[in-house]
């Protein structure tokens, strides 16, 4: 009886998250092809206009349409997060999988290395990496990808170590199935229930970290749009044009809320 109620609750998380993320994804895709105004078109006559039907989220200090800029900024943030999660998840699965399946000294060393990476605040390490490599979009992706590897490697490693001892993996070894095939066809699909929530959480963290880095001026550089960069601009006008900061911040919140609910729903569905 108790199990049933938690399951129902998990589904509501999952559905709300799916609907919200779906909506955000739609807007992001829309922003790739169409924005109501050009995100870079300045209009000196229309500076700091409050939200209206003409400008849904108002205009900024150059008279640019904030809705169009949010769409474009979300695009950029989304693409960066996608790259970061794609790279760090792939590398994390490779490292975690090999460590968990084979164990041994390399496993010990890599696990400790991952632990020490996670011991530092992510933004601090990102600062260090960016100060070594220089600023800009691609260096942000590089820095965050490295920082996010441990979060994937850890969950994947424990799953591979668990599955290694299961009878179906032993059987596969007896049948003469190759190690690569055991790793990727026999064990990997069984890690999806823990990998999927990790991916959605990682995605959230990537969006947040990118926004923080751009906000601090070490991420995406001006002329390119990014939600963090817009937030950084908007704080100057917090009193004269509060909708600028509120709407940009609101976009970040909604984006992250959707994926958080989605990952929470996924975890609850797996009984986690």
């Amino acid at each position: 009886m108790k199990k049933k109620t938690t399951r129902k609750k998990g589904n509501s998380f999952l559905y709300t998250g799916a609907v919200l993320s779906g909506l955000m994804l739609f807007l992001i895709l829309l922003g790739c092809f169409w924005t109501p105004y050009s995100p870079t078109a300045m209009d000196a006559a229309a500076k700091f206009q409050a939200p209206s039907w003409a400008h849904l989220l108002g205009t900024d200090n150059f008279g640019r349409d904030i809705f169009s800029r949010v769409l474009q900024g979300a695009d950029a943030s989304f693409l960066i997060a996608l790259c970061v999660v794609g790279i760090s998840c792939t590398l994390g699965v490779l490292i975690g999988g090999l460590c968990g399946y084979y164990g041994g000294l390399a496993d010990l060393a890599l696990t400790r290395l991952c632990d020490s990476i996670t011991a530092f605040p992510a933004i601090l390490l990102a600062l260090v990496i960016v100060s070594l490599t220089g600023r800009g979009k691609y260096n942000v992706i590089f820095a965050l990808s490295i920082l996010f590897i441990p979060s994937f490697a850890r969950v994947v490693r424990s799953e591979f170590a668990r599955c290694r001892e299961l009878n179906y993996v032993k059987s596969a070894r007896l049948m003469g199935v190759s190690d690569g095939r055991i790793l990727f066809r026999h064990i990997l699909p069984n890690t999806f229930p823990v990998l999927l929530p990790a991916v959605t959480i990682g995605f959230n963290n990537a969006i947040l970290s990118e926004a923080s880095m751009s906000f601090l001026g070490i991420g995406v550089q001006p002329t390119e749009a990014s939600l963090g960069l817009m937030l950084s601009d908007s704080q100057t006008y917090l009193q004269s044009a509060p909708w600028y900061a509120l709407c940009t911040g609101g976009a970040v919140v909604l984006l992250i809320l959707g994926f958080s609910l989605l990952s929470e729903g996924l975890q609850r569905r797996n009984g986690g």
């Binding site: 009878n167 032993k170 059987s171 007896l174 049948m175 026999h186 069984n190 999806f192």
Partner: peptide, 22 residues
């Protein structure tokens, strides 16, 4: 290649695949 049948029928089949695949 001698093969093995295990005691526990629950961990001896890969839950991620169909019976046919297994």
């Amino acid at each position: 290649r001698p093969q093995m049948v295990f005691q526990d029928p629950y961990s001896s089949l890969n839950p991620a695949h169909s019976v046919g695949w297994i």
